[in-house]
Amino acid sequence: EPSQADLDALLSAVRDNRLSIEQAVTLLTPSSGGGSGGGSMDAKEILTRFKDGGLDRAAAQALLAGRTPA
């Protein structure tokens, strides 16, 4: 399960175009075949909204942490 520091680094990389959204989703869902963790939004949607400015960093982190299976 990614830590808050991992999520923060991942969000920074996506925002700075050092990591594509697809690459980030793969890192967030290493063994689930890329499927959502059952959250209301999947990781790709969360990351896309964050990059487009629709979500701030704290909200994106909380959503990603919340949808990651324990």
Rank of each mutant, 00 (worst) to 15 (best):
L63A: 06
D56K: 04
S20C: 03
I21V: 07
L28Q: 01
Q61D: 03
G37S: 09
G39H: 14
A70W: 02
L27A: 05
R49D: 03
G33F: 13
G66I: 10
A43S: 06
G33W: 14
L7E: 02
D16K: 05
D8A: 10
A65E: 09
A43K: 05
L55C: 03
T29G: 13
A62T: 09
T29V: 12
A24R: 00
G37I: 14
N17E: 08
L19E: 01
I46C: 02
M41D: 05
L63N: 02
V14L: 07
T29D: 10
L28A: 03
S3P: 10
L47M: 03
T26Q: 14
M41W: 12
L19T: 03
A24E: 00
A13P: 00
A9P: 03
A65G: 10
A60N: 00
L10W: 04
R15G: 05
D42E: 09
A70I: 10
Q23V: 06
L28T: 02
A9Y: 11
L64G: 01
K51S: 03
Q23P: 01
G35C: 12
K51G: 02
K44G: 05
G39Y: 09
E1S: 14
L28N: 01
T26G: 09
D52R: 07
L64H: 01
R15P: 00
P69M: 10
I46T: 03
L27C: 06
A43W: 06
A70D: 14
S40F: 14
L63W: 03
G33P: 11
S3N: 09
A62D: 07
L63Q: 04
M41F: 13
E45G: 06
A59R: 06
G39R: 07
G34E: 11
L64C: 01
E1L: 14
Q4W: 15
L64D: 00
K51F: 04
A70E: 08
Q4F: 15
Q23T: 06
I21D: 00
S32M: 13
L63Y: 04
S32Q: 11
G33Y: 09
A60I: 03
G37T: 12
D6C: 15
D56Y: 02
G34R: 07
P30H: 11
F50E: 00
P30Y: 15
D8C: 14
F50T: 00
L19D: 01
S12N: 09
D56P: 05
A5Q: 12
A59E: 09
K51C: 03
G54P: 02
P30M: 12
R57W: 15
K44A: 08
D8G: 08
G54H: 13
G34C: 12
T29Q: 14
A58R: 07
R18W: 06
S3R: 08
G38D: 12
G54K: 15
Q61N: 07
S40P: 09
S32F: 12
L28S: 02
E45R: 05
G33V: 09
L19Y: 04
L63T: 02
D52P: 01
R18K: 13
R18V: 14
D8W: 15
A60S: 02
G39C: 11
G35K: 06
A43D: 04
T68S: 08
Q4L: 14
A24I: 02
I21E: 01
L64K: 00
T48I: 09
G66C: 12
G34V: 12
D16S: 08
G66M: 08
G66A: 10
A60E: 00
L47K: 00
L28R: 01
D6P: 06
E1R: 09
P69W: 03
L11M: 04
S31G: 08
L7P: 02
L27I: 10
G35H: 13
A62G: 04
A13L: 07
S40D: 10
D42F: 13
F50Q: 00
A59K: 07
S40T: 15
D42N: 10
V25D: 02
Q4S: 11
T29L: 09
L64Y: 01
K51W: 03
E22T: 05
S12P: 01
V25Q: 03
L55E: 01
L47G: 00
G34I: 15
D6F: 15
P2Y: 15
S40H: 12
V25R: 02
A24F: 02
I46Y: 02
G35V: 10
F50A: 01
L47F: 10
D56G: 05
E45I: 07
R18E: 06
R67E: 07
A58S: 08
D8M: 10
L63G: 03
Q61K: 15
L47T: 00
S32K: 09
K51D: 01
A13D: 05
T29H: 13
G54M: 13
N17I: 02
S20T: 13
I46W: 02
R57V: 06
A5D: 08
T68I: 12
G35Y: 03
N17V: 03
A62F: 04
I46D: 01
R49E: 03
E22W: 05
L27N: 03
P69S: 10
G39K: 08
V14I: 10
A5Y: 15
A60V: 06
S12T: 12
